[in-house]
Nucleic acid binder design. Structure first.
Length: 598
RNA sequence: GGCCCCAUAGUUCAAGGGAUAGAACAGAAGUUUCCUAAACUUCAGAUUCAGGUUCGAGUCCUGGUGGGGCUACCA
């Protein structure tokens, strides 16, 4: 169905030719939804046309309004307010619009076939040395949601994860376990695997700091102490052994990683997210090394006297960037070069989105430039979707100071408070414990996900653990609740044998509130598109909130199944049903499940 | 020092260069013989500052202030 704004733009361009004998590109004509507090459906902004009409805004608006009313049958009347031409449509237009979308399977969405462009989305990218925290939650939710959003706009999406399973930091927790672990396992301690390994990392850092302190006390200067502390040297040795494939080190590494993955899998499952493929740094860093060596041979990179390999980015306004250490081991950048190359070989993508925090903007800038230098044109297809940090009231989360909000703890606490609120309301008293627990989880995660996703990704956001996430107001549960109410009405209608129509009578008498609800629905296809272009689930979240608010007002003031007039009743049922469907579609892009009752 | 990002009610968030800057929470006051009151209705309250571009600026440009990030042989 063609959008009416397009009609209006084209008709306006025609009107301008007829009235003022001047050609205007319809795309330059501004048509927007009329402000909510004024009467009208669409508004034509006439200011930009004054240069052409050489008349005052009111007169210009009147003249164009008259022409448009003649040209477009859907227009009922118009009104010029200041420089704005407000167009009032016939109610039948909106009823017909609803009618035309009523049976659409995926309203506003584009379905991807095999020929649709492939977008790779990397998100999560955890380190195996610490459990997931609130920052990762933002990453995971954003990455998953953006993936769903891109799917809804007609892309084939491959969700990938990159596990940081190698490097000096991993050796630190391994070493600590070896020294002080006394054979502890997740089974023997009852701790989640990622938590257990994380604890050894913390232990290592503490011991290392202490050691450094002692060295300084004994008269070593600070720089040397930090560089040469025995524990650190030991960890570095271990990393070299790891890269050399030492059996004992590799065995230990495999063992501990397996614990961590099991723990991560649980957290991912709780969050309701997954990946199509998982890449491991341990498998790609060598590819990166090869690329670097080749770049060195080709003279694109250079080697310093100590053997370290660098890229010179000074011509690009950046600095020199280390790609291989003097001892030949790789850094983060090295493996990311390899990973990117691997992925493009796996499947040539149209676009590769990295969902990674904004503290790595520099890293991804360098990544693209270095790949380009190495001769890979597809470096231009990489896009860093950088998002802001999640801060606590006292500032940034700091793992080392224990100032983190653990992901598992947070999810558990959310479920607990959802249960508390729900039990207080007592609406689920007749349900089994299993059913209740499912619903508590849906509500808890709905609240958490919506809370995080409604915020514009680029912005730093604040999370106050003391003021736990709300279930009232602009929240996930508010949206879920509206959905549940609609389901309840529909259920009752079915029980009474009232059918939900798929065809509407265009002469149905509809109220202003009903029209504004359809108007809201009308916005969705464009909004979805825009959200996809901007990689912003926040736009979807805000749309859903507006829609639901609109519906609740309608619900408050209109009866649905109790309406006596059968035509009106049918219309309201169809409208409610469609709103519920739209809520469900939108929320599933946010990765939020809908309960049927709550 | 250099580069990048952010700044809107007491608080947390909205607002594709367009009209009187929207919500929510917190605060004050209402609405259940009626399809789920996790709702609805009132009230009160904000664009960091100074310039500029424009018919029109929260939005674009320049500068200042404030906050954050990056600038590692960490990731």
């Amino acid at each position: 169905m063609i959008r009416l704004e397009e009609h209006i733009k084209i008709a306006t361009a025609e009107a301008i030719v007829e009235l003022y004998e001047s050609e205007v590109d319809p795309n330059n004509i501004q048509v927007q939804a009329t402000r909510k507090d004024l009467t009208g459906d669409f508004t034509l902004v006439v200011f930009p046309l004054l240069k052409i009409s050489k008349k005052n805004p009111v007169l210009t608006g009147e003249e164009i309004g008259k022409k448009l009313t003649e040209k477009i049958q859907e227009i009922d009347s118009f009104e010029v307010v200041k420089g704005f031409l407000n167009l009032n449509l016939k109610a039948a237009f909106w009823v017909n619009y609803l009618n035309s979308i009523l049976t659409s399977e995926k309203y506003g969405q584009k379905c991807a076939d095999e020929n649709a462009p492939l977008v790779m989305v990397e998100y999560s990218s955890p380190n195996t040395n610490k459990p997931l925290h609130l920052g990762h939650i933002r990453n995971n939710l954003l990455g998953f949601s953006v993936s769903q959003l891109l799917k809804a706009t007609g892309k084939n999406v491959k969700m990938v994860n990159l596990v940081n399973d190698r490097g000096i930091h991993i050796c630190k927790s391994m070493l600590a376990w070896q020294k002080w672990g006394e054979g502890a396992t997740p089974e023997s301690t009852g701790k989640k695997g990622d938590r257990l390994v994380g604890d050894y990392y913390v232990l290592f850092e503490k011991a290392l700091q202490q050691q450094i302190g002692e060295l300084i006390e004994q008269g070593t200067d600070k720089e040397t102490a930090v560089k040469n502390a025995p524990l650190l040297v030991e960890a570095q040795n271990m990393l070299r052994k790891w890269e050399a494939g030492d059996d004992i080190v590799i065995d230990l590494w495999k063992n501990m990683n397996a614990w961590v993955y099991k723990g991560f899998d649980k957290t991912y499952a709780d969050l309701g997210i997954w990946f199509d493929k998982i890449y491991y740094e341990s498998e790609t860093y060598k590819l990166g090394k090869n690329l670097v060596v080749k770049g060195l041979e080709d003279g694109v990179l250079y080697q310093k006297d100590d053997g370290s390999v660098w890229a010179d980015l000074r011509d690009d306004g950046l600095d020199e960037k280390l790609l291989l250490r003097s001892d030949g081991t790789s850094v983060y950048m090295t493996q990311d070069l390899g990973t990117a190359h691997q992925r493009y070989s796996d499947s040539a993508f149209e676009n590769h989105v990295y969902v990674v925090g904004n503290e790595q903007i520099y890293h991804f800038k360098v990544l693209s430039i270095v790949l380009k230098k190495l001769g890979y044109e597809w470096a231009d297809l990489l896009f860093h979707l950088s998002y802001g940090m999640v801060e606590l009231p006292e500032g940034k989360m700091k793992s080392r100071e224990g100032k983190v909000v653990d992901a598992d703890d947070l999810i558990r606490e959310m479920v607990e408070s959802a249960a508390e609120v729900s039990n207080e309301l007592g609406k689920l008293d007749n349900f089994s414990d299993d059913e209740k627990n499912t619903i508590f989880k849906q509500i808890a995660l709905g609240a958490l996900k919506y809370f995080i996703l409604k915020v514009d990704p680029v912005k730093t956001m604040l999370f106050d653990p003391k003021e736990s996430i709300d279930f009232n107001g602009n929240t996930g549960p508010f949206i879920q609740y509206t959905y549940v109410r609609i389901q309840s009405v529909l259920r009752k209608a079915r029980e009474q044998g009232i059918e939900i129509p798929i065809q509407l009578d265009s002469s149905t008498d509809v109220s202003e509130k009903e029209i504004s609800l359809i108007r809201k629905l009308y916005e969705y296809p464009d909004l979805l598109n825009e959200a996809g272009n901007q990689y912003s689930p926040a736009l979807i979240a805000n749309y859903l909130y507006d829609l639901v608010k609109e519906f609740n007002q309608f619900y408050q003031h209109h009866q649905i199944i109790k309406e006596d007039n059968a035509t009106k009743r049918a219309f309201r049922l169809a409208l409610s049903n469609f709103v519920a469907k739209n809520i469900n579609d939108g929320m599933s892009i946010l990765g939020i499940e809908m309960p049927e009752r709550m």
